[in-house]
Design a protein around this nucleic acid. Structure first.
Lengths: 181, 181
DNA sequence: GTCTATATAGGGATAGAC
DNA sequence: GTCTATCCCTATATAGAC
């Protein structure tokens, strides 16, 4: 075990702030308050400053994304099973719809130039892995269908935060679960 | 004609900035540069400051939204025609997918408290008008289906800005057009 | 109505004590 | 490694000339 159990918790606290405010809207005061570090403390751990913090947030989130959403799609299970496990992963990844998607909030304003490439490659990987699964499930034009499905997830998260109603997220997940069972 | 042709153009220029950066990320310098007004000039037209500017942006956008998207759904045309006209309205409203959705960008951070109620009521109106049209077109559980369709639109706009590829938006619109023709 | 100039607060980022 | 204190810049907002 390495020497830094706190590190992951600090990044998690910062994740909250970037999810809620986006890159430009996340102030170092808010990040410091959420993570329990002073501004100087933040710069001790993230010498390159705010962009460094967001990059680490994105990296940790990307790991969770890979494990929870991409890995199920790569498994050797039958397609219906892969799809169902991905839906479980989505529910965990998005914490039952209670949080915003970093792919959305970090791609506004300056964030688009800073993190666009990483976020694009995450979505591309998702599309490329989801499409064959959908194809096995009998879906025509599976790649555009995969993009539409991903869009539905991202869009429902907007509604979920607006109405503060995670049921909207759950209802979509269950609808998708039934559709490809 | 009244004495204020500029007003609408000023608001339009401000809209660009809020769409790109969100509420917190939109600085008065950027708003001033885009609209061609000095900071003092901005406060002449919007005495209550930045929140006033965003509110007027949202109001003008809401008018466009009502005319281009809600009005077609309220018409006495057959359902398939109402739906197709709404898709045309969406393409105009979102400028062929080249811009972000204010309902997304203005609902991050502080914007959620400031503009959440207005944005929620816009989405609710959309759902309530779209659902009966979908029902006439043979869709089961039309209200959840309307929410999912709206989510698809909002989600594809995120992908469109990430990949800077308006084709993603057009492909979704055409898919929807074919589905309910 | 539009500007220059300025006030005040908060932003990101560092220095240096401990 | 964590803090207090501080630097410099930008942010929002206002005053007052024209």
């Amino acid at each position: 075990m390495p020497q830094k159990p706190p590190r992951s918790r600090v990044v998690q606290a910062m994740t909250d702030v970037f999810q809620r405010h986006g890159y430009e809207g996340a102030s170092l005061s808010a990040i410091g308050a959420a993570s329990g570090l002073s501004k100087a403390g933040l710069y001790h751990h993230f010498p390159a400053g705010k962009s460094d913090m967001a990059a680490q947030v994105l990296a940790q989130s990307g790991q969770r994304f890979t494990q929870l959403i991409l890995a199920p799609l790569r498994s050797s299970d039958p397609a219906a099973q892969r799809f169902a496990t991905m839906l479980d992963g989505l529910t965990t990844y998005y914490r039952d719809g209670s949080i915003n998607c970093l792919m959305n909030t970090l791609s506004l304003g300056d964030g688009l130039d800073l993190f666009g490439p990483q976020i694009r490659s995450a979505i591309e990987a998702w599309v490329k892995l989801l499409a064959p699964t959908l194809e096995e499930l009998g879906v025509d034009a599976p790649e555009p269908a995969a993009r539409r499905l991903i869009a539905q997830i991202h869009g429902i998260l907007i509604q979920t935060r607006l109405f503060e109603d995670p049921d909207l997220f759950h209802q979509l997940i269950e609808t998708l679960r039934r559709r490809y069972r």
